[in-house]
Design a protein around this nucleic acid. Structure first.
Length: 497
RNA sequence: GGUCCUUUGGCCGAGUGGCUAGGCAAAGCUCUGCAAAAGCUUCUACAGCGGUUCGAAUCCGCUAGGGACCUCCA
């Protein structure tokens, strides 16, 4: 099976075929750096990191572009120009760029914690004002935009006469006009459905640029079109983002780019679903967000403990990206435990001896393991069904542990299958899923100290001095370090709650 | 109001018409000096009603609940 992707545009799973053989271009809507990222933001960036990693593993040379929105968009069209960035800047008495820098840094810090690979290009909106202006000029020349009082609007009605406006988001344009909310200052537009390409800036507006239409700032949708076109071309393979961006953002992107470049911009539209909390979308406007810093520190009334970024990554990979994922402390705690168990089994697997060519004593089991391993790729090929891969891995976990403990004979599984397991677990867990060890056991000092304690405890146990040995174990337990007596007489330890 | 989606065991979640996903929790057992960890076993669910079918969690209809978008939103 080859990679199939669910295309939001056709609403079908489609075989992935890149435009340029061996290469793939992917654009993902990035963060608006006017505030701190929350759990909801983690999902698209982890999801598309997986897509990025998988395409690379499949042999594609991928250019992954993820923008940073630092220009700030108006809160509400037509209202007094209060763009998100400048408004907050006044409140916090910061320069807009200072604010942007702060939250960009914080965002990158969180991405690193999640072990997300950096995009190939991370363009900023403010760095591409020129490109955006050029694009708007072109749309005007094509006759699909008009200027009013220093602002430029896209003529949706005219566009809809020639193209399929609303196809992506499943909207009917006539209904759109009916249902669009009453907003102030709409009289500038010829039609309610029109959207701004460029907005004239009020004098108090901090973020402002010179343009052919006067001083102003770009509309919300144009930055993505301009930057995607610049770095990926008029037509590229994959465009990703949250489902909440389908309309109007992505719908408008299609319209702008289509007029400007005379081609539909994207072959495969991918949209991740929302993370919910108590069944409701986690979002700024609902006032129910849990920030990433709060998750990592456990500093939030809804959280019983800090959660490691890898536990969160695992939590997200355990569901399908197009399903809503309901957050709760219990659900996350369950993922945390599950991930630790899986990872420990993986560490155990790495240490199991394997000799190529050694036969299997238990052919049936051997075959079963092989078929589970074979399925990993099929599952990811099927629109990134990571949850299924993890389920299969958990089928194998007891086998790994049994091999270690001797519940299953060491020769039950063939050497080749063992090598296959070792390789496949590494590839899927680390390379493709981007998971990594939760504890920093490579800390030399810590390692040394713990090994010393383990030695002392071993000696004590040898002398049946259980008071001392239990005391060592209990004290370490209180520090969050768990000692485990192995069947072989060895002791191992793990750090973590 | 319009458009679309969703409802799976105590909780989270995967599910391509026929083959008990998986995780967490819980209970019992094995191992252990005692624990922990690990292993084994148990818990067989698909909102309700009706239909199609030899067969439906999966397809269709109705009813009820929940949600998303239509406005900044990942």
């Amino acid at each position: 099976m080859a990679l199939h992707i669910y295309n939001s545009y056709s609403r079908k799973k489609e075989l992935f075929k890149s435009i340029t053989p061996g290469h793939a271009g992917m654009y993902v809507c990035g963060p608006t750096v006017s505030g701190e990222s929350h759990l909801g933001h983690a999902r698209p960036y982890i999801t598309f990191d997986l897509v990025f990693r998988y395409l690379q593993w499949k042999g594609f040379k991928v250019r992954y572009v993820r923008n940073i929105t630092d220009a700030g968009h108006f809160e509400e069209e037509g209202r007094e120009a209060e763009d998100k960035v400048s408004k907050k800047a006044l409140l916090e008495k910061l320069e807009p760029m200072e604010l942007v820098q702060k939250y960009s840094n914080l965002f990158h810090w969180a991405m690193k914690k999640f072990n997300n690979i950096e995009p190939s290009i991370e363009p900023t909106a403010t760095g591409h004002i020129v490109e955006q202006i050029e694009m708007i000029k072109k749309i005007i020349r094509e006759g699909f935009a008009y200027e009013v009082n220093g602002s430029v609007y896209f003529d949706v009605k005219k566009y809809a006469r020639h193209y399929d406006y609303g196809k992506l988001s499943g909207r009917v344009i006539d209904e759109l006009m009916e249902t669009t909310r009453e907003l102030e200052g709409q009289e500038e537009k010829r039609d309610k459905a029109d959207f701004a390409l460029w907005k004239a800036a009020a004098p108090e507006h901090i973020m402002r640029w010179q343009s052919p239409w006067g001083v102003g700032f770009p509309g919300w949708h144009i930055e993505c079109s301009a930057m995607a076109t610049k770095y990926l071309g008029a037509r590229f393979d994959i465009h990703g983002g949250g489902m909440d961006l389908l309309f109007p953002h992505h719908e408008s992107e299609i319209a702008q780019s289509t007029i400007c470049n005379h081609t539909a911009p994207v072959n495969y539209w991918m949209h991740n679903n929302m993370i919910t909390i108590n069944g409701k979308k986690m979002g700024k406007s609902y006032n129910n967000v849990i920030k990433l810093t709060e998750l990592f520190s456990g500093n939030h009334p809804l959280l019983s403990q800090p959660f490691h970024p890898m536990a969160i990554r695992f939590f997200i990979l355990q569901s399908h990206y197009r399903s809503t994922l309901d957050f709760s402390n219990d659900a996350l705690a369950a993922s945390d435990k599950a991930f630790r168990r899986l990872w420990e089994a993986y560490e155990t697997l790495k240490k199991l001896p394997a000799t190529a060519g050694a036969p299997a004593d238990d052919e049936e089991l051997d075959e079963k393991v092989k078929s589970w391993l074979d399925e990993f790729e099929e599952f990811v090929d099927d629109d990134f069904s990571t949850a299924k891969v993890l389920a299969s891995m958990f089928e194998i976990v007891p086998i790994i542990n049994s091999l270690k403990d001797g519940h299953i004979s060491a020769n039950a599984i063939s050497g080749n299958t063992l090598l296959y397991m070792k390789n496949h677990f590494r590839v899927f867990l680390e390379d493709i899923f981007g998971l990594q060890a939760i504890s920093n056991a490579d800390d030399k000092l810590l390692n040394g100290l713990l090994n010393l304690l383990v030695q002392i405890r071993k000696t004590a146990r040898g002398k049946k001095d259980f008071v001392l040995s239990d005391s060592i174990r209990d004290h370490l337990q209180k520090l969050g370090i768990q000692l485990k007596d192995e069947k072989s007489g060895e002791m191992s330890w793990t750090i973590g709650s």
